[in-house]
Design a protein around this nucleic acid. Sequence first.
DNA 1: GTGAAAGCGCTAACAG
DNA 2: CTGTTAGCGCTTTCAC
Lengths: 335, 335
Amino acid sequence: MKITIKEIASMSEVSTATVSKVLSGKDEKISNRTRNRILKLAKAHNYIPNRIASSLVTKKTQTLGLIIPNIANPFFPEIARGTEDFAHEKGYTLILCNTDDQLEKEERYINMLEEKMVDGIIFTASSQRHDKLERLCRVKVPVIMVDREVEGLAAQGKVVVDNILGAYDAVKYLVELGYEYILHITGPMTSKPARDRLEGYKRALIDSGIVFHDNRFFSHEFNSEWGYKTLNQVIASKITFDAIFCGNDLIAIGVLKALRQQGLRVPEDVGLVGFDNIHMARMMDPELTTVDQPNYEMGYQSAKMLINMIENKFVKSEPIILGTKLIVRQSTSAR
Amino acid sequence: MKITIKEIASMSEVSTATVSKVLSGKDEKISNRTRNRILKLAKAHNYIPNRIASSLVTKKTQTLGLIIPNIANPFFPEIARGTEDFAHEKGYTLILCNTDDQLEKEERYINMLEEKMVDGIIFTASSQRHDKLERLCRVKVPVIMVDREVEGLAAQGKVVVDNILGAYDAVKYLVELGYEYILHITGPMTSKPARDRLEGYKRALIDSGIVFHDNRFFSHEFNSEWGYKTLNQVIASKITFDAIFCGNDLIAIGVLKALRQQGLRVPEDVGLVGFDNIHMARMMDPELTTVDQPNYEMGYQSAKMLINMIENKFVKSEPIILGTKLIVRQSTSAR
DNA sequence: GTGAAAGCGCTAACAG
DNA sequence: CTGTTAGCGCTTTCAC
C-alpha cells in the first residue's frame, strides 16, 4: 500500500533516477518544473522513503548501537539521553542494548548490531574480564568505549572521566576540613572507575600524610543497600571514623540513612561525600556533597566522536577525558 | 570484506537458494551432507547475515520503536527495561526515542521509525493535547499505548495502570489511620495518570464523608522541586493539614525534605504517601509509604502484546489494566 | 533435494 | 537536465 519511488516516477513521467535525486536532495541539476512536480506528488501521496532499501545500496543505516549494562541503573539514563540527543541531531537513530554485565549478552548484541548493519557502536563494557571478548575486535564498524575502558582492548575511541582526580579532590577536601579518619565504601574492584576512585583516595591520603588502612576500605556493590549495610557493620566493629567517601551517590544515600538511624549527625559528627551528582543527591537532608560526573556530556561526546568517525572515516580519535567537579553542599563542614 | 551468501554458495558448489534455506533454518528438505558443508563454511568464514537485505524482501525488520518523553526521567527506565527484555527474548531489537513531551518530536520519530520499517511501536504519549496527532493514525504498523492513554485516539492496544484505584486505596488508608486534612500535590492535569489519581483521591474523600477543598490540591509538575516548593508555600499560607498524598514519589521526596526543615515529624505530625514505588523510596528516612506501580511489568507486557500482534496479525488486543499495590512503610502511622 | 530466475525499493555511474 | 542500466544481499516461487 505504501507508495514507492517507481510509482511517483510513472505518475510524474520521469525516471526513478530523477525521482530519487529529487527526493534525496541531490537535485542541483534538476529543473524546477520537474522538481516541483515530483515534490508535490510525493507529498500528496504521503511518500515515505524506504530506508531499508537505500541502506542496502549505500551501506549506511544511520543507526547506532548503544550497549550498556542496564538502563534501569540510574547512572545510565543520562548517558543514554546524551547519546540519543546528539544522534538525533544528526539524523541517527539509537538501538538500546542491556547486557546485565554479562559477556555472553555483550557478544549476542554485538552480533545483532552487526547484522543490522549499524554504522557504529557505543559501548560501556561490563565489569567482567574482557580478555575473552575478542569478538569486539572483529567488529568492522567504529566502536567508542564510554565510562569504562577495557585494558588491553584497543578501541578506536574512548570517552571517560578522570575518576582518579575526582576522588583525589574530594578526599583532599575532607582532609582540609579537618576530617581525619576517612572510610571509603565503594563498588566492585572489577570496575575501572571503582579502581580509579580508590587510587585517588589513596593518593590524597598519602599526600596528606595519612596512612591508608585497608580496614577502612569496603568494596562490593554500587548500590544503597551496600552502603547501608556496610555502615552498620562498621559501627558494630567499632572502627574509628569521622568521614566517609563513597564510591557513588547511591552508596552515600544508604550510608546517610544508617548514620541517621545510629544517631550520628551529618556533617557535625561525620562528613559524607558521594560521587556522580545524581539528581537525588540534592534532595537529601542534608544535601549531599558529591563529585559531579558529566554523564550526559559523556554520552553526548561519545555520539559526537562516533558520528565524526563514521562520516569522516577517521580511524582513530583522540580519547576524551572529561573533568569532574566537587559540588560542596551540606554533608561536609569545617570541624 | 564481509562474506555473503553468494560466496558461500560458490565455495560449497550449490546455489544461493540452497544456502539461504540452510542458513535460515528452512532446511527440512536439504540433505545432511549439503547442510553440513554449508554450515561449516559459514562458521569458518564468520558469516554474518545481512538483515537489511533480508528485511527488504521479507518486509520484517525484527525491530520495534519505543517512544517515551525522556529516558532520564526515573519513571521510564524501568519501562524501557521491561520492553527491551521481552523484545530481546523474541529476537527483536529496540530503537529508543525521547520526545520531551513535544508533539513535533513525536511526529518526527514516528516518521523515522516508519522509514526504518519497524515492525511495531510502543508509545507513551506526551501530556500534550493529541487532537492534532492524526499522524499517529496513519501508521501502518501496530501501536501500543503505554501508561498514558490518549482519549479519542483508538490505538490498537494499550497497557495501563489503574491509577484511580491506586490513589483511592492510598487515601482511604490515610483516612483509616485517622488523618483528616489530606493535601494532594501532583503533576500536570494534562497527564492522564495525574487526572486519574486526582479522581481516586476525590472518590476516597467522598466515600469517607470528607469534602474536597480545592485549596488542598496543587497540580504542576512531577518532580521533587515542585513538592518542596509547594509544601513551603502551604506552610506560609497556614493551610491546615495532617497528611499529604503525592502524585508521585519524586514529589513526596521533595515534600519530605521541606517537612523536615520545617521541623515537622513524619509520620507523627504529618502522614506522607507517594506513588510509583521508585527504588529511592525505601532509602528515605522515614521510608516512604507509596503505591507500587508495576513499571517493568508495563514495559514487558506491552512488548508482549505488540509482538503478539505483529506475529499473529491480530488487529486489536484487549487492553491490559495492571493493578497497583499499597506499600506501607514508615511515613504513615495510626494517629 | 536443488537451482534458475525474478524481484524487494532504492542509488549511482555513465550516457546522452 | 534526464534516463538507462546494473546492482545491493537476500528470499521465494516453481520447475527439474
